[in-house]
Design a protein around this nucleic acid. Structure first.
Lengths: 150, 150
DNA sequence: GCAAATAATATCGTGCACGATATAAGCTTG
DNA sequence: CAAGCTTATATCGTGCACGATATTATTTGC
């Protein structure tokens, strides 16, 4: 019996599926290393942004992480409960909530320093492939952002 | 004031972040085209598997989609409510739930046929880059699966 | 045959992700 | 300076994702 599914609807021919699957698998890999620190992968992304830019408005965190406040507000509240950040209204513009790093939040950076390296070690994927993949994704990302603005 | 964040913790140096971001952006792109059909992107992935393999045990859908029953069971129930599939215990092994396509489920395939092509058109990303990216991801995926089994 | 191990689904709890809507502060323009 | 527009954040509802655990059916070893 032949299968009439057209080629373009076969799972193995999709670009999006391996992207979607790889993203989830990597999040699982991170979990083992981030769970002892009490944070999730999306929280880790937000912390990376804050380690570079804090103090930083919620809006600016969202712009870099490509996340809206409906995702960020509860996530930031959880980070605040953990004691890693402080949320504080900006005096000069009361609409803005600025995110500040606490001492624990800054200290967390040192405890995370080995995570990216350890992760690369754990799955032996060749370094040149990683670089190639990253270059392609960095090219794709702005294109995707643009087509969502239309 | 200098920023002491080590290079490997900078967001722009991560491989995983653009993967995570691109995956989410693409899901948003799909949303516009799948919403009129009443399904989400993960449901679309499951339907692609069923168009190839139905009738098919939940376990086998999960193996291909890389999803466990805690995600699949509710997702499949929603597809059943929409009338696209039928869930039915296997007579020869009562543990197994086989997923069957309904007529509407099969008809949905034709209505989805243009989706992958339309999506590629909507964001003008060059075809050779897409192929390159897909090849790299198909190489990465098995490696990731392996390192999660350890 | 029957207890223990294994296998296939299901359920539960927590945390994203996101469209839609609400709220409140600031800005603008007549 | 007031009505209306814009901006920043928050809230709500739905649907993944997934670790942990429960449930029921089959298989395995004695």
């Amino acid at each position: 019996m032949s299968n009439d599914t057209p080629e373009e609807l076969r799972l193995d021919n999709q670009l999006c599926f391996p992207l979607y699957a790889a993203s989830r698998l990597i999040t699982r890999l991170y979990k083992d290393r981030l769970e002892p620190l009490g944070i999730t992968y999306p929280q880790y992304v937000v912390m990376m942004i804050l380690w570079e830019d804090a103090p930083c408005a919620v809006k600016d965190v969202g712009r870099r992480a490509i996340l809206n406040t409906n995702t960020l507000t509860p996530l930031l509240k959880r980070l605040e409960e953990q004691g890693y950040i402080r949320r504080q209204r900006d005096g000069s513009d009361e609409r803005v909530v600025k995110i500040h790093l606490t001492d624990a939040g800054l200290a967390l950076r040192d405890r995370c320093a080995c995570v990216p390296w350890e992760l690369l070690q754990s799955c032996d994927v060749p370094m040149d492939k990683v670089d190639e993949l990253k270059a392609l994704l960095d090219e794709l990302l702005p294109v995707l952002k643009n087509s969502l603005d239309d």
